[in-house]
């Protein structure tokens, strides 16, 4: 019974990691950049959700929407001012810029909101469904429904729509995509917007679960989501989803059976193992250089 309970908790946190991991993997797939500012985009999205609920009194779905739109715009602006000028620069330059952007956003949050954690109002009932000795909270259900729902939407968008197909084309060959009449810059903006919006969704759900917001809240879930993306195969969208769930479940089982202090060590140990055994991740493509 304890196993099932821990498993459910893992699925809950794993769905949040998966949402955040999607932003890393989509951006990597299209511009080959690890956007280290993604955790901070998620954190600022969580703050906007916090203000929308606590200050402006918006209902939860509307607050989510506001947070997602805010982060989408933030992601697009960051790409335009910080990453786009470096698109043809050595990759390490863009990576350093992303780390710089991450610290900048953290410090902006620190100045604007102060260092102290603020309590997220309980927007979702604390009640739980009891199935024998197993409890499933409404929050877990809401989180899972939202996360899986948006993943299905994303999958449909990428497989079925013209813009979604163009995103896949651009991620494979930018020059050939341009020759199809695709505006590569617009597609990159759309990718940052979607990835950042999903990050904000993850951020608000994370803030509701723990239940607080603080300027450094993006770091650990951001890193873990990055591990999830690498575990699933960076650049692979289903990989990020699966990686997120696996990571969440592993973390939760470690907390339940070994010790909470070990959970982060296990998570990052997994990263090292994956990189040693299968560097391209579970669903990653073999990196073959094309002629």
């Amino acid at each position: 019974m304890q196993f099932i309970q821990q498993f459910i908790n893992g699925v809950h946190v794993g769905s949040i990691y998966a949402l955040i991991a999607l932003g890393y993997t989509m951006v990597y797939g299209i511009v080959k950049l690890i956007n280290f500012a993604h955790g901070e985009i998620m954190m600022l999205g969580a703050y906007v959700g916090f203000f929308a609920i606590g200050l402006w009194g918006l209902p939860f779905p509307l607050a989510l929407l506001v947070a997602m739109v805010f982060s989408a715009l933030l992601g697009v602006v960051i790409e335009r001012i910080a990453y786009k000028p470096l698109r043809n620069a050595p990759r390490i330059s863009a990576l350093i810029t992303a780390i710089g952007m991450s610290l900048l956003l953290q410090n902006i949050a620190l100045v604007l909101f102060g260092p102290d954690p603020q309590k997220m109002p309980a927007v979702i009932s604390k009640e739980a469904i009891h199935l024998g000795s197993i409890q499933i909270s409404y929050l877990t259900i809401v989180t899972l429904v939202l996360a899986v729902g948006f993943m299905i939407l994303l999958e449909l968008f990428i497989k079925r729509t013209k813009t979604g197909k163009a995103m896949r084309a651009v991620s494979q060959d930018k020059a050939a995509s341009t020759l199809m009449g695709i505006d590569v810059n617009r597609i990159i903006s759309v990718t940052f917007a979607i990835g950042s919006a999903l990050g904000a969704l993850g951020g608000v759900l994370y803030a509701v679960a723990y239940p607080q917001v603080e300027p450094y809240m993006g770091i650990m879930p951001g890193l873990k989501a990055f591990v999830a993306a690498v575990l699933g195969g960076i650049g692979s969208i289903p990989g990020a989803m699966i990686g997120g769930f696996i990571l969440g479940i592993m973390e939760s089982l470690t907390k339940g059976y070994i010790s909470s202090q070990w959970s982060d060590a296990v998570v990052f140990g997994v990263l090292i193992l994956v990189l040693l055994i299968k560097p391209s991740g579970l669903l990653g493509k073999n990196t073959r250089e094309k002629v």
Binding site: A166, R168, A169, S177, G181, I182, K285
Partner: peptide
């Protein structure tokens, strides 16, 4: 586009 189907490649050709 190697990772897309033949049909999707042709659809991309008609992008404009």
């Amino acid at each position: 586009f190697a990772q897309m189907t033949v049909l999707e490649n042709l659809q991309m050709g008609a992008f404009t």
